[in-house]
Protein backbone atom coordinates (compact mmCIF):
# COMPACT_ATOMS: atom_id res chain seq x y z
CA UNK A 1 0.00 0.00 0.00
CA UNK A 2 1.42 3.42 -0.88
CA UNK A 3 2.60 5.49 2.05
CA UNK A 4 0.10 8.32 1.44
CA UNK A 5 -2.83 5.90 1.27
CA UNK A 6 -1.73 4.34 4.54
CA UNK A 7 -1.58 7.79 6.12
CA UNK A 8 -5.00 8.70 4.78
CA UNK A 9 -6.41 5.44 6.08
CA UNK A 10 -5.03 6.14 9.55
CA UNK A 11 -6.28 9.68 9.42
CA UNK A 12 -9.76 8.58 8.48
CA UNK A 13 -9.93 5.97 11.19
CA UNK A 14 -8.50 8.32 13.85
CA UNK A 15 -11.84 9.91 14.94
CA UNK A 16 -13.44 6.50 15.40
CA UNK A 17 -10.42 5.25 17.33
CA UNK A 18 -10.46 8.34 19.55
CA UNK A 19 -14.17 7.88 20.09
CA UNK A 20 -13.71 4.24 21.11
CA UNK A 21 -10.83 5.08 23.43
CA UNK A 22 -12.90 7.77 25.10
CA UNK A 23 -16.03 5.71 25.28
CA UNK A 24 -14.59 2.31 26.21
CA UNK A 25 -10.99 2.88 27.18
CA UNK A 26 -11.48 5.50 29.86
CA UNK A 27 -14.22 3.66 31.76
CA UNK A 28 -12.21 0.45 31.52
CA UNK A 29 -9.12 2.08 33.02
CA UNK A 30 -11.24 3.64 35.74
CA UNK A 31 -12.85 0.28 36.46
CA UNK A 32 -9.49 -1.41 36.72
CA UNK A 33 -8.34 1.23 39.22
CA UNK A 34 -11.52 0.95 41.29
CA UNK A 35 -11.38 -2.82 41.27
CA UNK A 36 -8.01 -2.77 43.05
CA UNK A 37 -9.02 0.00 45.47
CA UNK A 38 -10.93 0.50 48.67
CA UNK A 39 -13.53 2.90 47.39
CA UNK A 40 -16.99 4.05 48.42
CA UNK A 41 -19.08 7.11 47.68
CA UNK A 42 -17.19 9.05 50.33
CA UNK A 43 -13.80 8.65 48.63
CA UNK A 44 -14.87 8.04 45.05
CA UNK A 45 -12.44 10.72 43.82
CA UNK A 46 -9.58 9.47 45.95
CA UNK A 47 -9.62 5.64 45.94
CA UNK A 48 -7.09 3.85 48.14
CA UNK A 49 -5.14 1.14 46.30
CA UNK A 50 -5.33 -2.23 48.09
CA UNK A 51 -4.29 -4.79 45.46
CA UNK A 52 -6.47 -7.70 44.46
CA UNK A 53 -8.41 -8.20 47.67
CA UNK A 54 -11.69 -7.10 46.05
CA UNK A 55 -11.30 -9.92 43.53
CA UNK A 56 -10.51 -12.37 46.32
CA UNK A 57 -13.54 -11.13 48.26
CA UNK A 58 -15.84 -11.62 45.28
CA UNK A 59 -14.44 -15.06 44.50
CA UNK A 60 -14.83 -16.13 48.14
CA UNK A 61 -18.37 -14.78 48.40
CA UNK A 62 -20.95 -17.60 48.07
CA UNK A 63 -23.50 -15.01 47.00
CA UNK A 64 -21.35 -14.06 44.00
CA UNK A 65 -21.40 -17.67 42.83
CA UNK A 66 -25.10 -18.02 43.64
CA UNK A 67 -25.79 -14.93 41.51
CA UNK A 68 -23.59 -16.28 38.69
CA UNK A 69 -25.43 -19.62 38.83
CA UNK A 70 -28.81 -17.84 38.84
CA UNK A 71 -27.90 -15.81 35.75
CA UNK A 72 -26.38 -18.79 33.93
CA UNK A 73 -29.38 -21.02 34.66
CA UNK A 74 -31.83 -18.27 33.76
CA UNK A 75 -29.98 -17.35 30.57
CA UNK A 76 -29.70 -20.94 29.33
CA UNK A 77 -33.27 -21.99 30.14
CA UNK A 78 -34.82 -18.86 28.70
CA UNK A 79 -32.67 -18.93 25.56
CA UNK A 80 -33.52 -22.59 24.87
CA UNK A 81 -37.26 -22.06 25.38
CA UNK A 82 -37.30 -18.95 23.23
CA UNK A 83 -35.39 -20.55 20.37
CA UNK A 84 -37.56 -23.68 20.41
CA UNK A 85 -40.78 -21.65 20.66
CA UNK A 86 -39.59 -19.14 18.06
CA UNK A 87 -38.59 -21.93 15.68
CA UNK A 88 -41.91 -23.71 16.13
CA UNK A 89 -43.88 -20.54 15.53
CA UNK A 90 -41.75 -19.57 12.53
CA UNK A 91 -42.37 -22.91 10.84
CA UNK A 92 -46.02 -23.41 11.75
CA UNK A 93 -47.06 -19.83 11.05
CA UNK A 94 -45.02 -19.50 7.85
CA UNK A 95 -48.02 -20.06 5.52
CA UNK A 96 -50.01 -17.48 7.49
CA UNK A 97 -47.17 -14.95 7.44
CA UNK A 98 -46.84 -15.43 3.68
CA UNK A 99 -50.46 -14.38 3.20
CA UNK A 100 -50.69 -11.77 5.98
CA UNK A 101 -47.23 -10.34 6.69
CA UNK A 102 -48.68 -7.61 8.93
CA UNK A 103 -49.23 -10.29 11.59
CA UNK A 104 -45.47 -10.27 12.22
CA UNK A 105 -45.65 -6.62 13.27
CA UNK A 106 -48.45 -7.49 15.68
CA UNK A 107 -46.39 -10.26 17.25
CA UNK A 108 -43.45 -7.89 17.70
CA UNK A 109 -45.41 -5.62 20.04
CA UNK A 110 -44.21 -7.15 23.35
CA UNK A 111 -40.65 -6.16 22.43
CA UNK A 112 -41.71 -2.52 22.24
CA UNK A 113 -42.37 -2.37 25.98
CA UNK A 114 -39.50 -1.39 28.28
CA UNK A 115 -38.50 -4.41 30.44
CA UNK A 116 -38.83 -2.35 33.63
CA UNK A 117 -42.43 -1.58 32.72
CA UNK A 118 -43.06 -5.23 31.95
CA UNK A 119 -41.90 -6.04 35.49
CA UNK A 120 -44.23 -3.43 36.96
CA UNK A 121 -47.09 -4.62 34.78
CA UNK A 122 -46.77 -8.19 35.98
CA UNK A 123 -46.37 -6.99 39.56
CA UNK A 124 -49.89 -5.62 39.18
CA UNK A 125 -51.29 -8.50 37.13
CA UNK A 126 -50.07 -11.07 39.66
CA UNK A 127 -51.01 -9.12 42.79
CA UNK A 128 -53.65 -10.95 44.77
CA UNK A 129 -55.92 -7.95 45.27
CA UNK A 130 -55.56 -5.96 42.08
CA UNK A 131 -54.37 -8.53 39.55
CA UNK A 132 -56.48 -10.45 37.05
CA UNK A 133 -54.58 -13.74 37.18
CA UNK A 134 -54.99 -14.55 40.91
CA UNK A 135 -58.56 -13.26 40.77
CA UNK A 136 -59.68 -15.68 38.07
CA UNK A 137 -57.69 -18.60 39.46
CA UNK A 138 -59.39 -18.03 42.79
CA UNK A 139 -62.79 -17.81 41.09
CA UNK A 140 -62.31 -20.96 39.03
CA UNK A 141 -60.14 -23.19 41.22
CA UNK A 142 -60.45 -21.69 44.69
CA UNK A 143 -56.68 -21.20 44.99
CA UNK A 144 -53.61 -19.88 43.19
CA UNK A 145 -49.86 -20.19 43.67
CA UNK A 146 -47.70 -17.45 45.17
CA UNK A 147 -46.37 -16.42 41.77
CA UNK A 148 -43.70 -14.15 43.20
CA UNK A 149 -42.92 -16.23 46.29
CA UNK A 150 -39.66 -18.07 46.78
CA UNK A 151 -40.85 -21.34 45.18
CA UNK A 152 -42.44 -19.83 42.10
CA UNK A 153 -40.46 -16.67 41.38
CA UNK A 154 -37.97 -18.33 39.01
CA UNK A 155 -40.71 -19.99 36.95
CA UNK A 156 -42.66 -16.74 36.82
CA UNK A 157 -39.60 -14.82 35.66
CA UNK A 158 -38.80 -17.38 32.96
CA UNK A 159 -42.39 -17.19 31.72
CA UNK A 160 -42.42 -13.41 31.61
CA UNK A 161 -39.06 -13.21 29.85
CA UNK A 162 -40.22 -15.83 27.35
CA UNK A 163 -43.47 -14.02 26.62
CA UNK A 164 -41.68 -10.77 25.98
CA UNK A 165 -38.71 -11.95 23.94
CA UNK A 166 -39.85 -15.00 21.97
CA UNK A 167 -41.01 -12.61 19.21
CA UNK A 168 -37.36 -11.62 18.77
CA UNK A 169 -36.40 -15.26 18.13
CA UNK A 170 -39.43 -15.63 15.90
CA UNK A 171 -38.41 -12.63 13.80
CA UNK A 172 -34.89 -13.92 13.07
CA UNK A 173 -35.93 -17.53 12.58
CA UNK A 174 -38.85 -16.59 10.36
CA UNK A 175 -36.48 -14.62 8.12
CA UNK A 176 -34.09 -17.54 8.06
CA UNK A 177 -36.85 -20.04 7.27
CA UNK A 178 -38.21 -17.81 4.53
CA UNK A 179 -34.70 -17.55 3.05
CA UNK A 180 -34.41 -21.28 2.42
CA UNK A 181 -34.65 -21.62 -1.35
CA UNK A 182 -37.88 -23.24 -2.57
CA UNK A 183 -35.75 -24.92 -5.25
CA UNK A 184 -33.90 -26.92 -2.62
CA UNK A 185 -37.13 -27.96 -0.96
CA UNK A 186 -38.56 -28.90 -4.34
CA UNK A 187 -35.51 -30.97 -5.21
CA UNK A 188 -35.72 -32.77 -1.87
CA UNK A 189 -39.42 -33.40 -2.43
CA UNK A 190 -38.67 -34.96 -5.80
CA UNK A 191 -36.27 -37.28 -3.97
CA UNK A 192 -39.14 -38.31 -1.68
CA UNK A 193 -38.47 -36.13 1.38
CA UNK A 194 -41.66 -35.03 3.08
CA UNK A 195 -42.83 -33.33 6.33
CA UNK A 196 -40.55 -33.97 9.33
CA UNK A 197 -37.79 -35.51 7.18
CA UNK A 198 -37.72 -32.46 4.94
CA UNK A 199 -37.54 -30.17 7.94
CA UNK A 200 -34.86 -32.15 9.80
CA UNK A 201 -32.63 -32.86 6.82
CA UNK A 202 -33.06 -29.73 4.73
CA UNK A 203 -34.52 -26.75 6.61
CA UNK A 204 -32.89 -27.26 9.97
CA UNK A 205 -29.28 -27.62 8.74
CA UNK A 206 -29.69 -24.52 6.59
CA UNK A 207 -31.15 -22.60 9.53
CA UNK A 208 -28.47 -23.67 12.01
CA UNK A 209 -26.36 -20.48 11.78
CA UNK A 210 -29.46 -18.36 12.45
CA UNK A 211 -30.51 -20.66 15.30
CA UNK A 212 -27.03 -20.41 16.81
CA UNK A 213 -26.97 -16.61 16.58
CA UNK A 214 -30.49 -16.33 18.00
CA UNK A 215 -29.60 -18.57 20.91
CA UNK A 216 -26.43 -16.62 21.60
CA UNK A 217 -28.18 -13.22 21.49
CA UNK A 218 -31.01 -14.36 23.70
CA UNK A 219 -28.59 -15.97 26.16
CA UNK A 220 -26.53 -12.78 26.48
CA UNK A 221 -29.63 -10.67 26.93
CA UNK A 222 -31.17 -12.99 29.52
CA UNK A 223 -27.91 -13.57 31.38
CA UNK A 224 -27.66 -9.88 32.17
CA UNK A 225 -31.31 -9.69 33.28
CA UNK A 226 -31.93 -6.73 35.56
CA UNK A 227 -34.80 -4.31 34.79
CA UNK A 228 -37.86 -6.55 34.86
CA UNK A 229 -36.39 -8.72 37.61
CA UNK A 230 -35.63 -5.72 39.78
CA UNK A 231 -39.04 -4.11 39.42
CA UNK A 232 -40.87 -7.41 39.85
CA UNK A 233 -39.21 -9.05 42.87
CA UNK A 234 -35.87 -7.29 43.45
CA UNK A 235 -33.18 -9.52 44.96
CA UNK A 236 -35.91 -11.80 46.36
CA UNK A 237 -36.43 -13.26 49.82
CA UNK A 238 -32.99 -14.04 51.22
CA UNK A 239 -31.44 -13.01 47.90
CA UNK A 240 -33.11 -15.93 46.09
CA UNK A 241 -33.55 -14.01 42.82
CA UNK A 242 -30.23 -12.20 42.78
CA UNK A 243 -28.79 -12.22 39.27
CA UNK A 244 -25.25 -11.09 38.50
CA UNK A 245 -26.51 -7.65 37.50
CA UNK A 246 -28.46 -7.30 40.75
CA UNK A 247 -25.47 -8.54 42.76
CA UNK A 248 -23.30 -5.82 41.22
CA UNK A 249 -26.02 -3.18 41.66
CA UNK A 250 -26.54 -4.13 45.31
CA UNK A 251 -22.82 -4.07 46.06
CA UNK A 252 -22.43 -0.70 44.35
CA UNK A 253 -25.50 1.27 45.38
CA UNK A 254 -26.90 -0.48 48.44
CA UNK A 255 -23.80 -1.63 50.26
CA UNK A 256 -21.59 1.14 48.90
CA UNK A 257 -18.71 -1.29 48.30
CA UNK A 258 -17.78 0.09 44.91
CA UNK A 259 -14.47 -1.82 44.78
CA UNK A 260 -16.26 -5.15 45.21
CA UNK A 261 -18.96 -4.25 42.68
CA UNK A 262 -16.42 -3.25 40.05
CA UNK A 263 -14.23 -6.29 40.72
CA UNK A 264 -17.28 -8.53 40.24
CA UNK A 265 -18.10 -6.76 36.97
CA UNK A 266 -14.49 -7.17 35.81
CA UNK A 267 -14.68 -10.90 36.53
CA UNK A 268 -17.86 -11.00 34.49
CA UNK A 269 -16.12 -9.12 31.69
CA UNK A 270 -13.26 -11.61 31.74
CA UNK A 271 -15.67 -14.55 31.61
CA UNK A 272 -17.55 -12.94 28.71
CA UNK A 273 -14.28 -12.36 26.89
CA UNK A 274 -13.34 -16.03 27.22
CA UNK A 275 -16.72 -17.11 25.85
CA UNK A 276 -16.47 -14.69 22.92
CA UNK A 277 -12.90 -15.80 22.21
CA UNK A 278 -13.98 -19.46 22.12
CA UNK A 279 -16.90 -18.68 19.82
CA UNK A 280 -14.69 -16.55 17.63
CA UNK A 281 -12.20 -19.40 17.43
CA UNK A 282 -14.90 -21.88 16.46
CA UNK A 283 -16.26 -19.54 13.81
CA UNK A 284 -12.79 -18.89 12.36
CA UNK A 285 -12.07 -22.61 12.20
CA UNK A 286 -15.30 -23.28 10.33
CA UNK A 287 -14.89 -20.38 7.94
CA UNK A 288 -12.70 -22.20 5.32
CA UNK A 289 -15.36 -24.89 5.02
Amino acid sequence: MPRTSRFEGRLLIAPLTAFLIALLGFPLVLDIIYSVSRVGFENIRAPELIGFSNYAKAMADPEFWAAAWFSLRFGLIVAVIQVVAGLGLAVFLAPLFAKRPWLIALLMLPMMVAPALVGLMYRLILHEFVGAVPYYLLEWYGDFPAFLGRDWAFTTLVTIETLQWTPFALLILHSSYAAVSPDIREAASLDGARGRRLFVNIDLPLMMPAIGITFFLRFIDSFRVFDNLYTLVGPGAGGSTTSMSIYIYQAFFKVGDIGLAVAASMLLLAASFVVLWVINGLTARKAPL
Binding site: H127, E128, F129, V130, A146, L148, A153
Partner: peptide
Amino acid sequence: SPKDSTTYEFAEANAAFGAGQ
Protein backbone atom coordinates in the same frame (compact mmCIF):
# COMPACT_ATOMS: atom_id res chain seq x y z
CA SER B 1 -50.98 -12.79 55.51
CA PRO B 2 -51.11 -13.15 51.68
CA LYS B 3 -48.89 -15.81 50.11
CA ASP B 4 -46.87 -13.24 48.20
CA SER B 5 -46.11 -11.26 51.36
CA THR B 6 -42.41 -12.01 50.84
CA THR B 7 -42.63 -9.57 47.92
CA TYR B 8 -44.78 -6.98 49.66
CA GLU B 9 -43.75 -3.49 50.59
CA PHE B 10 -45.66 -0.27 51.32
CA ALA B 11 -47.84 -0.20 48.19
CA GLU B 12 -48.77 -3.89 48.12
CA ALA B 13 -49.71 -3.89 51.79
CA ASN B 14 -51.89 -0.83 51.30
CA ALA B 15 -53.57 -2.52 48.32
CA ALA B 16 -54.44 -5.55 50.47
CA PHE B 17 -55.75 -3.48 53.37
CA GLY B 18 -57.46 -1.03 51.06
CA ALA B 19 -59.27 -3.88 49.29
CA GLY B 20 -60.93 -4.66 52.61
CA GLN B 21 -59.32 -8.10 52.76
